[in-house]
Design a binder for these strands. Structure first.
Length: 274
DNA sequence: TTCCGGCGTT
DNA sequence: AACGCGGGAA
């Protein structure tokens, strides 16, 4: 069943969130701006990655690729080089693919509808709604981990396995028609604070999944290969075994995966960046 | 050692 | 619906 909030509940909640925000707001180079391209770049970087780590990468990235056109025409290797150390390298590939699509399909102008945004590679439900809310300041429902934390902590203090379908109506009911961008900044900052003071409430979300260990994982090996290529331009398949400390068959498998995703190029026995 | 979280793929 | 994907901080 859907929880119905009274106007008093809504006003009280909004005041609580906004008063926290007014005294604790975080300032970032990707906030309080309207350029959809910069919003998109920051949102790709912010997928699975903490704001503090994103900031220097965002600044360097925008300096090197100030416009969607400049990103669309760059060699992917350059993009991956700037991405080095941020993690989840395929996001860089998706981001550039997105830039190319915006240039070719939308004449270099980012679309403002959820549907068109979500059709772009690397943009799903969250990123599309975040771009609409932040770049176009349109009141749209946005849900992500910090927002989940706020609503779970506030409205489901004793529940477990909470479905988004229960949270979404509450986000919609408390969404102000004006100042949407600031509202979501406020919710996210409030959520970060809640997670600091309590055991992460988002862990009580139904779809919260614990991730497998990183050490020795394929993800780590993929990252090592990309790092090596950024540093040394090329690496041979033979060198991979000592780099990854694994069997040749395993190294081939990892490299093949990267090649299939378009993150590396394999010519003979040598790997290099696209 | 544990924690983290949106997207594409399967 | 479940899984794979980085790397740094706590």
């Amino acid at each position: 069943m859907i929880q119905r909030l009274s106007p008093q509940d809504v006003a009280h909640f909004q005041k609580q969130v906004l008063s926290f925000y007014h005294q604790n707001k975080r300032v970032f180079p990707f906030r309080d701006i309207n350029d959809p391209y910069k919003i998109v770049v920051s949102e790709y970087m912010l997928q699975q990655t903490q704001t503090a780590r994103v900031v220097p990468f965002f600044i360097r990235f925008i300096e090197r690729f100030p416009t969607v056109q400049s990103l669309a025409t760059a060699p992917l290797g350059d993009v991956l080089t700037l991405w080095q150390g941020l993690g989840y390298n395929r996001r860089a590939k998706f981001l550039q693919k997105c830039a190319i699509a915006v240039v070719s399909q939308f004449d270099g102008v980012f679309p403002s509808s959820l549907e068109e945004l979500q059709s772009l590679p690397g943009i799903g439900a969250y990123t599309a709604s975040a771009v609409v809310a932040f770049a176009f300041e349109t009141p749209v429902m946005v849900i992500e981990t910090n927002i989940r934390a706020v609503f779970i902590h506030t409205f489901f203090p004793d529940d477990e396995k909470i479905e988004d379908n229960l949270i979404i109506p509450l986000i919609e009911q408390t969404l102000p028609q004006n100042g949407v961008r600031e509202w979501y900044y406020a919710l996210m900052d409030y959520g970060v604070d809640i997670k600091k003071r309590h055991k992460n409430p988002a862990r009580r979300s139904k779809h919260h999944a614990k991730q497998s260990p990183f050490l020795g994982s394929n993800r780590q090996k993929r990252g090592l290969i990309l790092r090596e290529l950024v540093t040394n331009k090329t690496v041979s398949v033979e060198e991979l075994c000592s780099l990854l400390q694994c069997e040749p068959q395993k190294a081939e498998e990892i490299a093949a995966g990267l090649e299939k995703e378009g993150l590396i190029i394999k010519e003979g026995r040598v790997l290099y960046l696209p």
